[in-house]
Design a protein around this nucleic acid. Structure first.
Length: 552
DNA sequence: AACTACTTCAACCGCACGTAC
DNA sequence: CGTACGTGCGGTTGAAGTAGT
């Protein structure tokens, strides 16, 4: 931006510039078309006087026809400038100040779904402008880039195919705004995962047929066999438009899984005492074992995860080593970063974003070898894959059964997935899917999820909050809870307890996982690493102008 | 106190799209 | 159909503010 014109002192003491448009360059030189009266259009910061003029004009004439402002007032601003000023600063009901945590989380969530669709995001953040959101995001990018953190929690990508750019550009979003709104609506209702949705997904997507994958998607997405950043690689997915046009909403399950990722306090107290903000997963936190004496086999390990610092550290004093700071996202030192997470204190009730920021700016320094954690937490990839094969078989069967109550148990990890399952099912066939969420009575399946990190640390005491009948054996997925991004994602999911899109992501997570996988249980998540393709993950993109996760 | 580095944010720019003529 | 115009969006810039040395 170069306000290289006459600088004048404005009435509020600010310097502003006057752009002298020459006749030859008057039309589009500054992005505004001249009104053709030899006008001298002012540029730069607005003065209070100008604001007053514009406000008066809008009061009299309403919004729109911005080029007429210059005609009808003494304001020497082009229409674009007027519109921008009004939209970003003068219009009523604008919310000023820092973004709330809910807003921040929604932004991240929406960005994962939409990409840089600031205006669309702003529609879902009342009182906020696209410019604000954009600025916030750019700041976030810089922060996380500097810290070497991935931009999104690892699970984010798998839920995003629903919101591909194709979708947002499709007629659906224009014609059916209500659905759009529903998708992002704020709410605290339980997520509903409709098995019919899943079945529909399975029919629509041949590879998407296993409930086990649905259940395990969040774990395998960052499974031990995957590289650190594979979770950012997109699964091969059908056209989102196709899915949407088919009418399926693919409600999420992960939020419900996450819903059970409560703090120890949560488990120790009552299930009804659900603090939506509570999320504390610090399995590898040797120093914080208050969550019970869970055996390592009872632990789920989320590989490559981050440990969140939960606001224990000052947020204003970056303390990263220079080397780490210079590492671009997805390239941070695996060992150092990994190690740092492990000993991070993790208060049970914490704030996700603050925690992340806290980590970014002041990570722990203790050293624990990643391999140590893995070896102690994980019995091996092969075992896991074998489990996967079993799961697929059993879960596939369970999906086809008419009984809505299917639960999963495991000797090593009890995962609670609360799902609302339509009785009788409404899957007709692909393309004729009904919105079961509206029409069906659903029963709930609750699968307690128990987290801990192998041998090292904190397992949740009182591991089962809700106990339901288990007639399916569900094998554990080890979750490397020492990886910051995974823990971030866990917290992320927890946010779904009070968040916005919590009833939409899990199914897509599952589908993404399913599509990325094969019958051998390999390569569930990514297409980049195992397919021989050149990965197109976030890491390969510029930090600015990032595509939505689904499109990577 | 002065300087530097960094962050934030308001505003501009170019482009795309829709509409009117 | 082509052009002009109005509007909106996303990317970029640089002034102002803040923190660190």
């Amino acid at each position: 931006m170069s306000y290289t014109t006459t600088t004048v002192d404005s009435d509020d003491g600010m310097h502003s510039s006057i752009h002298n448009e020459s006749p030859a360059a008057d039309s589009i030189s500054n992005g505004c078309r001249s009104r053709g009266k030899g006008s001298v259009l002012k540029k730069g910061p607005w003065t209070s006087t100008e604001d007053g003029i514009l406000i008066d004009y809008v009061k009299k004439h309403g919004e729109g026809n911005w080029n007429a402002v210059q005609k009808h007032t003494s304001l020497a601003r082009c229409g674009k400038s007027c519109r921008l000023r009004w939209a970003n600063h003068l219009r009523p009901n604008l919310k000023k100040g820092a973004f709330s945590q809910e807003e921040e989380q929604l932004i991240v969530e929406m960005h994962a779904k939409m990409g840089n669709k600031w205006a669309q995001m702003a529609e879902h953040l009342p009182g906020r402008t696209d410019n604000e959101i954009k600025n916030y995001w750019n700041t976030r990018i810089k922060r996380r880039q500097r810290a070497g953190l991935p931009l999104y929690p690892p699970e984010i990508h798998v839920e995003d195919f629903q919101w591909s750019e194709e979708y947002t550009k499709s007629n659906i979003i224009r014609v059916d705004r209500r659905r759009h709104q529903d998708f992002l609506q704020l709410g605290n209702s339980k997520a509903n995962v409709l098995f019919d949705d899943l079945n529909f997904a399975a029919s629509l997507l041949p590879a998407a047929s296993d409930l086990s994958d649905l259940v395990t998607c969040n774990m395998l997405g960052t499974g031990p066999s995957s590289s650190r950043y594979e979770s950012y690689m997109p699964p091969i997915l059908p056209s989102p438009k196709q899915i949407w046009e088919s009418g399926s909403r693919f409600p999420m399950c992960s939020s419900n899984i996450k819903h059970e990722f409560q703090s120890p306090e949560h488990f120790q107290n009552t299930a009804s005492q659900k603090n939506p903000r509570s999320c504390s997963i610090s399995p590898c936190d040797v120093d914080h074992p208050p969550y019970g004496n869970q055996h390592s086999s009872d632990m789920m390990m989320i590989p490559d995860s981050h440990t969140v610092t939960y606001g224990m550290l000052p947020t204003s004093k970056p303390s990263f080593g220079a080397v780490k700071l210079e590492l671009p996202s997805f390239q941070y030192s695996e060992t150092s970063a990994f190690d740092q997470w492990k000993t991070t204190p993790s208060p049970p009730h914490s704030d996700l974003l603050d925690s992340v920021d806290a980590y970014i700016q002041s990570p722990p320094s203790s050293q624990v070898e990643e391999s140590d954690c893995f070896s102690s937490c994980d019995t091996g990839l092969l075992d896991m894959l074998l489990h996967e094969a079993k799961i697929k078989t059993s879960a596939k069967h369970s999906l086809l059964m008419s009984s809505p109550q299917k639960s999963f148990s495991s000797t090593t990890c009890t995962t609670n997935v609360t799902q609302n399952v339509p009785r009788g099912g409404t899957l007709i066939k692909s393309g004729e899917y009904e919105d079961s969420q509206k029409n069906l009575t659903c029963s709930e399946i609750t699968i307690p999820m128990q987290l801990s990190a192998g041998g090292i640390s904190s397992a949740f005491a009182g591991n089962v909050v809700k106990t339901e009948e288990f007639d399916q054996v569900w094998e554990p997925k080890r979750v490397d809870t020492t990886r910051p991004d995974v823990l971030l994602a866990s917290s992320w999911l927890d946010q779904g307890c009070y968040g916005i899109v919590r009833d939409t992501s899990s199914m897509s997570d599952a589908l993404a996982l399913l599509l990325g996988g094969d019958d051998t249980g390999n390569s569930y998540v990514t297409v980049g690493s195992s397919s021989g393709q050149t990965p197109r993950g976030v890491g390969s993109c510029g930090w600015t102008n990032m595509p939505p996760v689904w499109s990577l």
